[in-house]
Amino acid sequence: MNRVAFRLVKDLGFRIYLVASTSVLLIPLGLILYYIVSNGITVINWDFLTSLPKPPGVLGAGISNAIVGSGLLIGIAGALSIPFGVAIGLFLNEFSETHLASAVRLCVEVLQGIPSIVIGIVAYLWIVVPLGGFSAVSGGIALALMMLPMVVRATEETLKLIPHSLKEASLGLGVPYYRTMIKIIVPAGANGILTGVLLGVARVAGETAPLLFTAFGNPFMTVNITQPVNSLPLIIYNFATSPYPDWQQVAWGASLVLIIFVLGLSLLTRTLIKR
């Protein structure tokens, strides 16, 4: 009897330990969210979102160029990685058993594991050096390389789940293969592919390392893709590590904007997955 009691106590102790260590996670999350919201909320207003950063000591600083720049970089990354990634996903699905497909899968896996800073180096060597300077397009390409594996994975996994009967139904009607893929299979998997794309966007939206020596940052507003641009993570990094308190305030505000965007996207994705 005693032994059973002892075992039950041990079990209870283990449960308490589990609950405790789970709550340990709550603390940093709570603290991080608390600091970002409480510091960020005081600086965010319409002017903050629509004006440019200012030198230290000048009032009315904003992050408009970083928001536009982030949009521009994500746009370039998406425009490159989504069609390419979906095509690769289709390829893997269709030529599943070929040697080329195994090679492609391996490459996607390796690409996904490459540290973001290394991607930044590659984009620098490929784009910045030949163009002779930092640019939005080099940053966008770096982000595209990071997004690509996620789009490919999402496409392949989604297409795998689409019942074969759907493809048969379409082909059986005399619909050519390419139309079957484009009009039936891809739309049937649109939700899953979109989920992958949104997760990819959420990930690259917060990426800083590959932008340090590609997009580089820019105190001014620009939509010229051959010029350096600012982005939310870059402005957070540069201002947070600066010695000026008002710049640090701007960084808190930018952090709040970024985190609302990223977490909003991931919540949106979760509801998509549930559907």
Binding site: I32, I36, G206, E207, I236, Y237, I259, V262, L263, S266
Partner: peptide
């Protein structure tokens, strides 16, 4: 997992 690295660093 969704919080960007730079924000962890800042915090």
């Amino acid at each position: 997992a969704g919080i960007p690295s730079v924000i962890y660093g800042f915090w």
